[in-house]
Amino acid sequence: MLAEKGRWSGLASIAFHLSFLFIGLGAILAGTLGFDESLDLPDGLTAPVPHSELRVTSHGFDMKTVPVKEGDRITGYRPSVYSTDLELTDGGEALARKTITVNDPLRYSASNWLLTLITSSKINFHQSSYYQSSNGYVSVLQVTYKPGKSLIYVGFGLMMAGICALYFPHRRIWVKADESGTLLLGGRTNRSKVIFQRDFDRIANELRHTLGKQEA
């Protein structure tokens, strides 16, 4: 007779290591077919989006500052928030508009959401930094296009699922009764052998205890 627990535990390790493949493939796809370019956009001007026919316009760069203090003395100012009011156009036709900040990029896709999810064909406009020129502020954008993003996320998912499942080991216990009425117990596990040993001994002891009572 066999009792077992966590039969699919062997898959956990496979899933975990398979995730490397997905992440690697996604990174290769993004690296070869995608792009990651820096774009300097002066206040109020329009610039072509790299590797495409699209154009992007800044409708204004905005910055808030906070004082930098040394004791009670103000020694300078540093930015607390900065943003660019960005508009994406295609031959004069407005496609999208958003005020982007450092952690809040503009993401645009021409196709429907399902196709976008599969091919991850989004162009992203990240607020990277800024600098001051003689004509005022210049917003620095990071324009990225990353096919293979969904593969990377599948990889992340597999990695997390696999690593959690690693802690549910595959445990098996066999019981065999022979002619003379002796019970033979055998067990096998693929992980956490010390704990299994302890549990196995406990089960064997309980069995001995209850069987002993029945006989008496």
Partner: peptide
């Protein structure tokens, strides 16, 4: 380590997702 390692893994993954959101790279 058996519990710290998964947490470190998830910590690195959340960092990668955050980096992608902020700078467009994992």
């Amino acid at each position: 380590i058996a519990f710290g390692f998964p947490l470190l893994t998830i910590g690195i993954i959340t960092g990668a997702i955050w980096a992608d959101q902020a700078w467009g790279r994992w």
